[in-house]
C-alpha cells in the first residue's frame, strides 16, 4: 500500500515536471503528459457517467419496472441520431426539451435572484450618518449610473452623456483591474499548490 502511494507520488511529480517543461518551450515530454491527461480524463468521465448517471438514474429503475423512464431513454437515444445525415433532425426533439427546461429554470432564477434583488440592493441612501458608509453608497450609486450610461447606445456619447460614459469607463476599468488581480492570485495559488506538492510530498523539503 505504501509503495503504491510512493509510485503515485513519483508519477504525479514526473507528470507535473513534464507539464512545467512547457515553460521552457514545447517539447515531447509536455506533449506526452498532455495527451495522457486528455485520454485518462475521457476514460474517467465515460466510466463515471455510466456508473453514476446512466445506471442509477435510468437503467436500474427501468429494469425494476419503472416503465415511464422509457420516454427519457428514447429521448436520450435520439441524441445519437446526430451521427447520421438522414436522421440527425430527430436529435432536435431531445435538444429542444433540454434547452426548454434549462431556459425555463434559468429565467426564473435570473429574474428573481439577479434582476430584482440586485436592483433593490443598489437603491441605497446617500447619507447614512456614517461618513465611510455614505462614501461607499455614493461611489456605488455613481458607478451603477455611469456604467449604465456607458452601455446606453441610443444617444451619442457627447456632452453630459459623454462625460457620464467616460466616468463609467473608469469604473469599468477599475473593476477589470480588480478582477485581473484576483485572476493573478488564483493562478499563483495553483502554482503554489503544485510546488507545495513537489517540495513537500515528493522531495520532503517542507516540514
Amino acid at each position: 500500500m505504501a509503495s503504491a502511494g510512493l509510485i503515485g507520488t513519483w508519477l504525479a511529480a514526473g507528470l507535473t515536471l513534464c507539464i512545467f517543461s512547457f515553460l521552457y518551450r514545447d517539447n515531447p515530454f509536455y506533449k506526452f503528459a498532455e495527451h495522457l491527461y486528455v485520454g485518462v480524463s475521457a476514460g474517467y468521465w465515460a466510466c463515471l457517467e455510466y456508473h453514476n448517471v446512466f445506471r442509477p438514474n435510468l437503467w436500474d429503475p427501468l429494469v425494476r419496472g419503472d416503465l415511464i423512464l422509457l420516454i427519457p431513454f428514447a429521448l436520450g437515444l435520439l441524441l445519437f441520431s446526430r451521427f447520421t445525415n438522414k436522421l440527425f433532425w430527430l436529435s432536435r426533439w431531445a435538444m429542444a426539451l433540454i434547452i426548454g427546461i434549462f431556459a425555463g429554470i434559468a429565467i426564473i432564477g435570473y429574474g428573481t435572484g439577479d434582476l430584482i434583488l440586485q436592483i433593490h440592493a443598489n437603491l441605497l441612501p446617500l447619507w447614512t450618518g456614517n461618513w465611510l458608509e455614505s462614501m461607499n453608497n455614493f461611489l456605488l450609486t455613481i458607478g451603477v449610473i455611469t456604467g449604465l450610461i456607458y452601455f446606453f447606445f441610443s444617444k451619442e456619447h457627447k456632452g453630459a452623456v459623454g462625460s457620464g460614459a467616460r466616468i463609467g469607463i473608469w469604473f469599468l476599468m477599475i473593476s477589470f483591474g480588480a478582477s485581473f488581480g484576483y485572476t493573478v492570485m488564483s493562478r499563483m495559488s495553483l502554482l503554489i499548490g503544485r510546488v507545495y506538492f513537489l517540495l513537500g510530498e515528493w522531495l520532503h523539503l517542507i516540514q
Binding site: 429554470i105 434559468a106 426564473i108 432564477g109 435570473y110 428573481t112 435572484g113 439577479d114 434583488l117 473593476s175 480588480a178 478582477s179 484576483y182 485572476t183 492570485m185 488564483s186 493562478r187 495559488s189
Partner: peptide
C-alpha cells in the same frame, strides 16, 4: 446557481468558498 435557484426561491442561508478568479 445556488444563489439564483435556491437562496431566493427557498429562503435558505448560503455561504460560499470559491476560487479567487470568480470571487469578484
Amino acid at each position: 446557481e445556488w444563489i439564483l435557484q435556491v437562496v431566493t426561491r427557498f429562503h435558505i442561508k448560503l455561504a460560499s468558498g470559491c476560487t479567487a478568479v470568480s470571487a469578484p
